[in-house]
Design a protein around this nucleic acid. Structure first.
Lengths: 193, 193
DNA sequence: AAAGATACGGAACATGGTTCCGCTTAGCAA
DNA sequence: TTGCTAAGCGGAACCATGTTCCGTATCTTT
């Protein structure tokens, strides 16, 4: 959207205080998400950033926008790890398994994120649009490679797989549950048999 | 707890209007759950039943109590189907697969129930206590039989499996997701390989 | 019919998301 | 430096929903 380098032709730049607030908000949100999960009260985040609630909504109209902004780097890292793993792994199936591990690691360490990912609430549209649009193609590439190599069944849809994995990560911090174990079953189930 | 046949010695029976209201609430809740999911507003259910909100809380202190009451019959049916399937199926693994299908059918047809099942909210304690206490042993029996027969890996925890399956059923009504497909992967992954 | 226990209704309170508008202030220009 | 203007801000106000509480109505028993 607002491509880099648009500084010289813009009619007016974003005000300095606005930029400061946006960064303070990102920092506060990151801290609050860690402490209280991604659905921490908006007021708490605003308070921690030292701004009013209106300022949050101005910069991040929906909660999903804020979540995306906070985790964009990590999602990006996960996305680029896909091709890398494919290149360096012994087999495509191994790459797929490693990559899913990465994704699961990401999800289970963000309290409430997996829950938010599956919500069909309109406010989380952005979350779907970004996370899935960015990661599903990567997953699809890995699936395709593994299928071509004959290691897995050929008709697995990447979006379904990603959503399922995301679902399995819900409640991963509960002591009586083991998301990784379930994900391992899924990965095993993919294998051609 | 309050065993049947306590009619003759009880100091005082439940008032007739109370019983009527309780039944009206169950009916209204069932209808509302179908129409608007298991987290429909309390006021809506009360209105449909023609009672005040206080009456809901008196009869069903938490939402989970109401959900359990509405679906008790179906959960019971699922529970008793376990041993039956084990007896009539070709192999324990086939019985396990069929039983999980039954469970998935139950979950995906109850909008929002899978979501509620995994909530760690204190109000859903009753839901965990009843659903899981009732179904996990059945699942454990099936798992044990299949493990003994050497059809599956022996160290799968029934609670983890049930929670995982429940998680996979979240968002099952979305057109871009396929809970059954994911569950099938899990079942396939259980198989000894 | 009277008395007492039981149950009811819904107002009132708590929480959290969202909107809106009067005020502040940064940035620009004279 | 001093205004001027629009971008940006704060937080009160509003809405939706869960939850509690108590004055009142109703049932059951005597």
């Amino acid at each position: 959207m607002s491509g880099a380098g648009g500084e010289m032709s813009a009619p007016r730049k974003q005000r300095a205080d606005a930029r400061r607030n946006q960064e303070a908000l990102l920092e506060a949100a990151a801290a609050t998400f860690v402490a209280a999960g991604v659905d921490a009260p908006v007021r708490d985040i605003a308070a921690k950033a030292g701004v009013g609630v209106g300022t949050i909504y101005r910069h991040f109209p929906t909660r999903a926008d804020l979540i995306v902004a906070v985790y964009r780097h990590q999602v990006e890292a996960c996305a680029v790890a896909g091709p890398a793993l494919l290149a360096e792994s012994a087999t495509p199936y191994a790459a797929l398994a490693s990559w899913i591990d990465l994704f699961v690691d990401f999800l289970v360490t963000k309290h409430g994120l997996a829950e938010a990912m599956q919500s069909d609430n309109a406010a989380f549209q952005t979350l779907h649009a970004y996370f899935l649009d960015r990661l599903v193609p990567v997953c699809a590439q890995l699936l395709d490679a593994a299928a071509t190599a004959g290691e897995i069944l050929p008709d697995m849809d990447a979006l379904v797989l990603m959503r399922g994995i995301g679902n399995l990560c819900i409640g991963a911090d509960s002591p009586s549950y083991d998301a990784r174990r379930m994900v391992a079953l899924v990965i095993a189930g993919l294998r051609r048999h």
